[in-house]
Amino acid sequence: MENIIEVTSLAKIFGNQTALEDVHFSVKKGETFGFLGPSGSGKTTTIKILTGQLSHTSGKASVFGKPAATLNKPQDRKRFGVITDNSGLYQRLSIEDNLKLYCNLYDVPSIRISEVLEMVSLSKERKKNVAKLSKGMIQRVTLARALLHEPELLFLDEPTSALDPANSKHIHEGLRELNRKGTTIFLTTHDMGEAESLCDRVAFLNKGRIQLLDEPKTLRRQFAENTVLLELQDGSNITLPGGQEGAKEVYERMASGQVVSIHSNEPTLGDIFVEVTGRELV
């Protein structure tokens, strides 16, 4: 499958501080790619380089087959969208007026406003001034704005940071729908739950370097302990080995009605991150 983003030996140095070092990855067309790491690991720096907002020190970063730094022509800008947790909206204007501006900038018919507001469940609020919206609603308007021109590639920098679970769920549903329609998504987050639920592949970024890159289920399997956890009727838990050896005991305990629930001992992406990097995802 065609690669939309290709990054080779990318490095970025600010003064005497290395923000990115020898970063390699590629993102396939139609994929949702997660760039995971704690604050200060280089996630936003990477997005800024890929969207032409920041120059890099060495290496290569290309988007749509062109060097990222050259993506400043209107026809290139129409191919991607960017959402950050502080993507500015005009506070004194209504949601509709904010979106109308971007319809005109992207040469999109105004009818699209109703469609994107429907997607983010804000149709009833379209005349409301942005200043009167909650943080969650503002983030949904930002998403709606990025969806107006149906970009081929969407960069999301911590899209649900500081949002409550209900609002995050809303945003996630919108992103899945967009991805189903063919948009490639590049997502940075330190929320492992978000990464697990949205991403086809994830890269763990720590201190400016990628330490692991694969599909979430492959990573979980790779780091799994191959044991099962049984929750018993008497309230106790026991861990049994996987395979033939454990299967017999699981069967016996189930047959005698002792088992309330069975869990595989697959680690979460957060657990794997801590194991690989020795750092918590905060």
Binding site: T51, Q53, P74, Q75, R77, K78, V82, N86, S87, G88, L89, Y90, Q91, Y102, L105, Y106, D107, R145
Partner: peptide
């Protein structure tokens, strides 16, 4: 104000030159 409210960045990342 566009800079302060981060809206100028939105315009710069749009097709507007």
């Amino acid at each position: 104000e566009e800079k302060e409210k981060n809206t100028l960045r939105g315009l710069m990342l749009s097709p507007a030159t």
